[in-house]
């Protein structure tokens, strides 16, 4: 039996802002289609709100309010890279992607590579060494080659359905495969299946200072 949702640890990390960026993209995509996990995440955010309420007050500089008030009087300055529009979205798959995934496309289109006659992959860069984010596209009725992975793999179905030895997966389903799991996904007969996947680099982590969270970088304490 396999879960089709992020585990509680992942939801807490998502809510507390410590989940890797690539994984957070997968979780966000799941939350848009899963009411239960979206509700759980809202409840978890209340924990963060409570922590703020309970936090000790560390005095701030006397002029800080004034600084904020003068910056809000200025025209809101949006970050240039934030507003960069991806003008030419030609690829039909790219066009249908969630906006936060589309924002990662260098030219507004995807570079598809054939891995087998029925499987194509396009990798996306999130600037993390620890994870690789990719889109997989399996032809209707197509079978992906049997594969194994060195690191954990998360898959979220975007469109279509696929199945493997353990189940049938539909849009929004969040599937975690551990290193060593061998499986052979197959798309449904009537429809192409597109998935988002996060493949963790097979890195052995030792000691707290090596545990660099890719989303939050801590100075060694």
């Amino acid at each position: 039996m396999i879960s089709k949702h992020p585990d509680p640890q992942a939801l807490v990390e998502y809510s507390s802002g410590t989940l890797a960026l690539a994984t957070s993209i997968a979780v966000t995509t799941h939350l848009q289609l899963c009411r239960t996990c979206a509700d759980a995440t809202s409840s978890l955010n209340n924990l963060g709100g409570d922590m703020i309420d309970q936090a000790e007050a560390t005095p701030v500089s006397e002029d800080l309010l004034q600084k904020v008030l003068s910056s809000i009087d200025e025209e809101p300055t949006k970050n240039a890279d934030h507003n960069r529009t991806r003008s030419s979205v030609v690829d039909d798959v790219a066009h249908a992607l969630p906006h936060y995934v589309r924002a990662l496309l260098p030219q507004g289109s995807l570079q598809w590579q054939f891995l087998s006659p029925s499987l194509r992959v396009a990798t996306l860069s999130v600037g993390e060494e620890e994870n690789e984010l990719a889109l997989h596209r399996i032809k209707a009725g197509g079978k992906a080659p049997e594969h194994n992975h060195a690191g954990q793999e998360i898959t979220v179905v975007l469109t279509g359905t696929f199945s493997d030895e353990e189940g049938i997966y539909q849009p929004g389903d969040f599937i975690v495969r551990q290193p060593g799991d061998v499986h052979r996904p197959m798309a449904a007969q009537n429809e192409e299946c597109i998935c988002l996947s996060v493949l963790a680099a097979p890195i052995k982590l030792t000691g707290i200072n090596r545990l660099m969270n890719p989303f939050l970088r801590f100075s060694p304490s």
């Binding site: 089709k4 949702h5 939801l11 239960t36 509700d39």
Partner: peptide, 9 residues
């Protein structure tokens, strides 16, 4: 905390 979690498995 009664955070409703999806039934897994």
């Amino acid at each position: 905390l009664r955070v409703g979690l999806a039934v897994t498995g």
